[in-house]
C-alpha cells in the first residue's frame, strides 16, 4: 500500500473533524464507541490515516494502539485513500463456481493493478468482495453502486472499464 500523497493530507481545521466530534459526543454515553467512531470517520474521510486515529483517541480516550488494532482487524477499514471508482468482483461461492476468478483476472488485466490496490491516477481500486448477496445473478461485479450481473463473457469487461476511464479523464480536464 502506498502512503497517502500530500494532496490527500487532511488539514487540522478540516470541517469533517467537527462532524466526527459531534458524532462521538452524541455517542459518549454508549459503551463501545471506538468502532462506531472509526466507522463514522471512514464514512467522512474515505480512509483512516494516522491523524484521524489521533483525533479519535483524544476525543474518546481510547489509546491509538487499540484503535489501530481495531482498524487493522476489520477488512472494511482502510488506512490509505481509495480510488474514485471502487471495482468489487464478487468472490462468493456461488459466483466462484460460475467463473468469478476469470472475471477477476480480466479486471486485473484491464485495470493494471492487483486486488486491494489503487491505480496511480487514483481512478480505480480493485477489491474481491466476500459476497454481494446477489447469488441469483452470478457471476457479479459491482462498480461503485452499479451491479453488472451474469458476466458470462469476460470480454465485455474492457469496454465497461473504458467507460469509467473516459468519464474520469473528461471530468479531470
Amino acid at each position: 500500500m502506498s502512503q497517502p500523497c500530500q494532496c490527500m493530507t487532511i488539514s487540522d481545521d478540516d470541517p469533517r473533524y467537527m462532524e466526527l466530534r459531534a458524532f462521538i459526543q452524541k455517542e459518549e454515553n454508549k459503551q463501545g464507541v471506538a468502532m462506531t467512531a472509526l466507522q463514522e470517520a471512514q464514512r467522512l474521510f474515505g480512509y483512516l490515516p494516522l491523524e484521524v486515529h489521533k483525533f479519535i483517541s483524544s476525543e474518546t480516550g481510547v489509546p491509538i494502539a487499540e484503535l489501530y488494532g481495531v482498524t487493522t482487524f476489520y477488512s472494511q477499514f482502510t488506512t490509505s485513500p481509495m480510488g474514485r471508482h471502487q471495482i468489487q468482483v464478487c468472490m462468493g461461492t456461488a459466483c466462484y463456481v460460475k467463473g468469478a476468478q476469470k472475471v477477476l483476472d480480466k479486471v486485473i488485466e484491464t485495470v493494471g493493478v492487483g486486488v486491494g490496490m489503487t491505480t496511480d491516477d487514483r481512478l480505480f481500486t480493485i477489491n474481491a468482495a466476500r459476497c454481494l448477496g446477489c447469488c441469483g445473478l452470478a457471476p457479479v461485479m459491482m462498480i461503485d453502486d452499479h451491479v453488472y450481473a451474469n458476466i458470462d463473457n469476460v470480454n465485455c469487461i474492457p469496454a465497461i472499464i473504458a467507460k469509467y476511464r473516459e468519464d474520469g479523464s473528461r471530468s479531470s480536464k
Binding site: 459503551q31 471506538a34 468502532m35 481510547v62 482487524f73
Partner: peptide, 9 residues
Amino acid sequence: ASIEGKRGM
C-alpha cells in the same frame, strides 16, 4: 467483543 468496540476475537 465486536459490539464492545474491540477486535472481534
